[in-house]
Design a protein around this nucleic acid. Structure first.
Lengths: 167, 167
DNA sequence: TATTGTTATACTCTATAACTATA
DNA sequence: TATAGTTATAGAGTATAACAATA
């Protein structure tokens, strides 16, 4: 009896971005105390994990992979470098800022990885491994689909849509 | 050839929180220009949608449903109230701050709903309706599972875990 | 000229604690 | 005493534009 059931958009609970947000919030809550305890922010931890997983990376790649804006990354680099966890690396292209984990950074990552895995395993146990795998696959596919989309709902040229969005 | 494949945690790409974040980022990107164009922040739009969907709500409920911290909500209320989009409502319990959409707020919501649905439909078309439904169901279930979990990996009393997290 | 990244700037949100007022 | 919310405060990230350096 919400009084006006005429135009409900899609039911707040069934909105995809909101469902993604809430699911993320609920799972992140499990990891955050662990990350906090090591004096890292969530974003800093993402950067460290990406580097541990892929080796040295440049700023642009990290920005995309960690979903962090370049200006934020600059600050995060400074903070992690000041703690001796990462260091700048030589790059063929001198424009690129490539960073790598130091030994200390790798050690911190490895130290944190165990507890992180345990938390993950707890969630997977409760949720079910097959569902977890299915969910991950769907998330990756959704991301690819959404990234491949032009701008609005259709139009594979992606020009008129951005204009429409601007006003 | 990342040089050290010994301890990979889980492969950055297969981390659930990161997959959720990236999927959300990719989909949000479709909606953001639309929300921007109406002078709302994403969080403000979440509040408006929740109110449009459920009728008047108190601060605590909105905080949980929109994943917004109470202090942020206070500020958002002020901003939306200043624009005449919401108003405070009487509550039996005088401690509660219940807000409702005004006519103007409802009108704005309805005006935005069309384009929002179109964007949504575009994503659903590209992704597939069954997958979308499956994904939503998994997300809701994951959230419920994660929320029901104690603190760390197990222990259904949720005490020792929070202590462990503190140090 | 285009690209990569940093700076500058302004704003929003996060997060915690302390406080007020109900209940 | 416990709960709901606001205020205070500090800090981090978002976002955009402007700029520097390199390609």
């Amino acid at each position: 009896m919400t009084e006006g059931s005429e135009r409900k958009l899609r039911g707040y609970e069934k909105s995809l971005p909101i469902a993604l947000l809430r699911a993320r919030e609920a799972t992140m809550r499990r990891f955050k105390p662990h990350v906090d305890a090591h004096g890292l922010t969530i974003q800093q931890w993402r950067v460290i994990r990406a580097l541990a997983d892929s080796g040295p990376l440049d700023s642009k790649t990290l920005a995309a992979r960690c979903v962090i804006m370049p200006p934020s990354l600059t600050r995060i680099f400074r903070a992690l470098e000041a703690r001796g966890l990462i260091r700048a690396e030589e790059a063929e292209d001198a424009r690129r800022h490539v960073v790598a984990l130091t030994g200390e950074g790798r050690a911190l990552h490895d130290r944190m990885a165990g507890a992180s895995e345990a938390i993950y395993a707890g969630i997977e146990d409760a949720f079910g491994a097959e569902k977890m795998a299915a969910l991950l696959a769907l998330l990756v596919e959704l991301r690819e689909v959404a990234e491949a989309m032009p701008e609005e709902g259709r139009a594979p040229d992606g020009k008129s849509a951005s204009e429409a969005a601007r006003r």
